[in-house]
């Protein structure tokens, strides 16, 4: 690949400085996006968030979907996603940050739908890969969280030149669905997610 990187020298956070907490529970994957195929690509440096990879008891399926999932758990799910152009995780690049993650409860007592809002901070303002990173975060959370969560991924205000356009795309379910049927793009996403779990 000839493409030069948008940001050749990003700021990198030390792994030990990243917010973490032993996860007491971990949301299951609803759908294995075939990440196993990419095991060979998992960079050796990344053991950041891999507390226990044994399968969780299959009992915690739909019945206990009202378990609380907090910001740290959301962070743990997306922190190990690999940057599409650097051999680093989104957490290490500070693309995803704990204070920019919010879990919002249902808006009505009759509703059981919670919303997860993740604001991402692309490494530099003209990062052309912001959409791909956002898509990776959205796919990761949609696969890992119970279906009662709606996932809203946005570019943090002012962090990106075309954030409105990127946000609108990431918000559009139909375009996200179509993008995931695009083999090339899905290959990039799978590679990014191959460092999760």
């Amino acid at each position: 690949m000839d493409r030069s990187k948008d940001n050749a020298n990003p700021t990198i956070l030390n792994a030990s400085d990243l917010p973490s907490r032993r996860r007491e529970l971990s949301a299951k994957k609803r759908d294995d996006g075939g990440t196993g195929l990419f095991d060979g690509l998992v960079p050796a440096y990344n053991y950041l968030n891999d507390p226990f990879d044994g399968p969780l008891s299959s009992s915690d399926s739909d019945d206990d979907s009202f378990e609380d999932i907090d910001e740290q758990e959301i962070y743990d799910l997306i922190a190990p996603i690999s940057d599409p152009e650097h051999p680093l995780s989104l957490a290490e690049l500070a693309v995803v940050n704990l204070p920019d993650i919010h879990v919002e409860p249902p808006t009505s007592p009759q509703s059981s739908i919670s919303t997860v809002v993740v604001e991402i901070t692309p490494t530099i303002t003209h990062c052309s890969l912001a959409t791909v990173i956002g898509l990776g975060v959205r796919v990761r959370l949609e696969q890992a969280l119970p279906p009662r969560f709606r996932v809203d991924v946005r570019v943090k205000k002012g962090a990106h030149n075309t954030d409105d356009a990127v946000n609108k795309q990431l918000r559009d379910k139909e375009r996200v669905a179509a993008a995931l049927e695009n083999g090339t793009l899905m290959g990039v996403i799978r590679k990014m997610l191959s460092t999760c779990e």
């Binding site: 009759q110 509703s111 059981s112 119970p146 279906p147 709606r150």
Partner: peptide
């Protein structure tokens, strides 16, 4: 009507 398709869209 709430939750026409459970928690799904």
């Amino acid at each position: 009507l709430y939750s026409a398709h459970d928690v799904f869209e």
